[in-house]
Every structure is written in C-alpha cells, then in structure tokens.
C-alpha cells in the first residue's frame, strides 16, 4: 500500500519534472529559432520531409473519410428527409473536428515519428555532440528547423485533408447517390461560418502542429542513445502525440463551440 502511494508520488514528481523540462526545451527552441528563418533552406528542407512527404497519406485518407462521411451521413439524414443537409454534415464534421484531429494523428505517425527517429539516430551516432563541439548549436541547426517545418506543415495538411474530405462527401452524395448539387453546396455554405467553424478548425490544427512537432523533436533529443532507446522514443512520440491531440481537442472544443 505504502509502496503504491510512493510509486504514485514518484510518477507525479517525474511528470512535473518532465513538464518543466519540455517547457524549458520549448523556450530554447524559440530562442534559437533565428537561424530557421534567416537560413530558410534549413526549414524548407524540413517542410519537404514533414509536409510534402505526408501529402499522399493525408490526401488519400481525407478522401476516404469524406466518402465514409457521405455514405453514413446520407444513411442517417434520409431517414428524416434531410438529405439536403448532407453537405452541412460532411463539412462541419471535417472542418471542426475530423480535419484537424485525424490529420494530426496521421501527421504524428508519419512525420513526427520520422523526426524523432532522425534526431534520435543523430544522437546515437554522436552527430549532435559533434555539432556542439564544432560550436554549432544542435538546437538551432537541427531541432528548430524541424520544429518549424512541422508547425507550418500541420495547418496546411489539415486544410488539405478537410478539402479532400468535402470533395469525397460530394462524390458520394452528389455524384453517386444523387443529392441535389445546389442544395449540397448552399446548405453547406449557409451553415458553415468562416470565423466560427473554419478559423477555429485552423487554430486547432496550428495548436496540434506545435504539440506534435514539440513532442517529436523533444523525444528525439531526449532519447536514450541506443537502438532500443530510439525505438522507444518513436513509440512515445506517436502515443503522446495522439493523447495530446485528443486532450487538446477536447479542451479547445469546449472553449470554442460552447453553443452559448
């Protein structure tokens, strides 16, 4: 019993310690971000690896999610004779929730894990130490560009995911099932508000981008420099990113869409 309480206490203290560490790391990244923008090609390279390389999976998944939403939405809506609202249902679910969340989860497993692996391997092979010994800050040269690459990619990928999803919903609803094209778009437009729905969705994806990118670079930088340590760090990146995305989503949704 005492042992259990003690373990819980240790766990709690470790958690707080870790939180402080990651916050300090975040601060360091911000301080050393200058180079990421003065030497833009460093960040562009990471934008390529985290953004462009995730493009395919994001577009394909977005399309399928849209198709499923179209099918399921139509199934439910036509029972109430409200199949004209299919566009609204597809667009609102994508723009508010599914776009940022699913794109975030995919991004964490596709790009976040790759960033962790890359930084982790650089640590294992002493490349980070070597850089530090060459009087080049690894945080400025390696960590910050990867962080910003992720932060910039995420909202763009989420927007592409949502757009692709709406297209998928349209394909099923209008092209395949035969919902009225005009009703699909006009109902959607009157129900989806730019500031309230679209912008809040974009804000969500930006926050997820910061969270996933920070977790990915942190886990890589902090990993135990062995093969096993790197593989554990990658797992932690995916798991903690997923948890962070879902928890942050809940918090933000409760702030943004309270329905007054």
């Amino acid at each position: 019993m005492v042992g259990a309480i003690r373990r819980l206490g240790t766990l709690f203290i470790n958690g707080v310690w870790q939180l402080g560490f990651i916050t300090r790391f975040f601060w360091l990244i911000l301080v050393y971000s200058g180079q990421s923008f003065t030497r833009l090609h460093l960040t562009l390279r990471e934008l390529y690896f985290s953004g462009v390389m995730s493009l395919l999976i994001i577009l394909v998944s977005g399309l399928f999610v849209g198709l499923v939403l179209g099918l399921q939405g139509y199934e439910t809506l036509q029972r109430y004779g409200a199949s004209d609202s299919l566009g609204t249902l597809v667009a609102l679910s994508l723009v508010r929730e599914l776009g940022p969340v699913v794109a975030g989860l995919l991004f964490a497993s596709r790009a976040g894990s790759a960033v962790t692996a890359e930084i982790g391997l650089m640590k294992v092979t002493e490349q980070l130490k070597a850089m530090d010994m060459m009087a080049v800050s690894p945080i400025a040269r390696v960590v910050a560009p990867r962080f910003w690459g992720g932060v910039i990619s995420m909202p763009l990928l989420a927007a592409l995911f949502s757009a692709m999803g709406v297209f998928g919903g349209w394909l099923i609803g209008v092209v395949a099932i035969g919902v009225d094209d005009g009703a699909f778009w006009s109902q959607m437009q009157s129900a989806v508000d730019f500031r309230y729905d679209v912008l809040n969705g974009v804000i969500k994806s930006c926050v997820f981008g910061v969270a996933v990118a920070l977790i990915a670079v942190f886990e890589g930088y902090d990993c135990v420099p062995t093969a096993e340590g790197v593989s554990r760090a990658i797992t932690r990146t995916v798991v903690s990113s997923a948890l962070a995305i879902l928890a942050l989503d809940f918090v933000m949704t409760s702030f943004m869409f309270r329905g007054q």
Partner: peptide, 25 residues
C-alpha cells in the same frame, strides 16, 4: 515541391473559407 505543397495548402484553406464556409464578415 515545397512550393507546390504550400500553394495547395493555401488553396485548400481558401476553398474552405469561400466555397465550404461563408465569410460572415
């Protein structure tokens, strides 16, 4: 490729803003 990616992302944002949603402002 990065250029294509950023352009596509911004196009998607515009699509969401103009075609999917309506700018209440």
């Amino acid at each position: 490729w990065v250029g294509v990616f950023v352009a596509a992302g911004i196009a998607a944002l515009l699509f969401l803003a103009l075609k999917v949603g309506s700018i209440s402002g």
